[in-house]
Amino acid sequence: MPDRADRRDADPDPVALLRRVADQRDEAAFARLFEDFAPRLKGLFRRGGTDNATAEELAQEAMLTVWRKASLYDPVKASPSTWIFCIARNLRIDATRRERRPEWDPEDPLLVPDHPEPADDRLAASQQTARLRAAIGALSPEQARVIELSFFEGKAHGEIASALGLPLGTVKSRVRLAVGHLRTTLGERS
């Protein structure tokens, strides 16, 4: 049996690590994911305005959810970072707003099923990430700031307006412009 260090170095791809957690309940793979993601999750929660202890607890909680839900991860639908972002986002909604997060259920018999995906769409996922990164980099500083405040800090438009000392209408039009720019990138796929 290979020792932990060997396996860690041999297989750092988070998709493969998640699969090992899902299929083999592999603690070494989990430890590696923890090392990669927990500090950034803590940074994300801290930026969202939670205190240090709560941010740490939420990061731990997010990683435990990663362990428990690993078998639901679908690499065709999301990158590991995106999937883990969604886990963190839902924890944040629950912890800071005391609200439920309404979501559709892939197993719901009433769900209108996905159209079959063309095979080349699957190949496009990594290109998609690269394009998206470039598009975020190309936003004006004002637009980047509103996107950051939404996705990073979980702020609604009204909260962004008070944080930046701007009228709500200005924030809404910045969001609309930023989303419009990113949309061009995201929409090129279909």
């Binding site: 430890a31 923890f34 090392e35 993601f37 927990a38 500090p39 950034r40 999750l41 803590k42 940074g43 994300l44 801290r46 930026r47 941010a55 740490e56 990061a59 731990q60 639908k77 999301a78 990158s79 590991p80 970072s81 995106t82 999937w83 883990i84 972002f85 969604c86 963190a88 986002r89 998609q128 990430t129 998206l132 990164r133 975020i136 996107i147 950051e148 996705f151 990073f152 989303v179 990113l182 995201l186 929409g187 796929r189």
Partner: peptide, 25 residues
């Protein structure tokens, strides 16, 4: 929705890491 969630993935990738307390893992 998944396409916009990918922005969240990018944001998480770019988040400044904050060390957890010793022995967190």
């Amino acid at each position: 929705t998944r396409a916009f969630e990918a922005i969240g993935g990018e944001v998480l990738d770019g988040a400044a890491p904050l060390a957890l307390s010793a022995g967190a893992a």
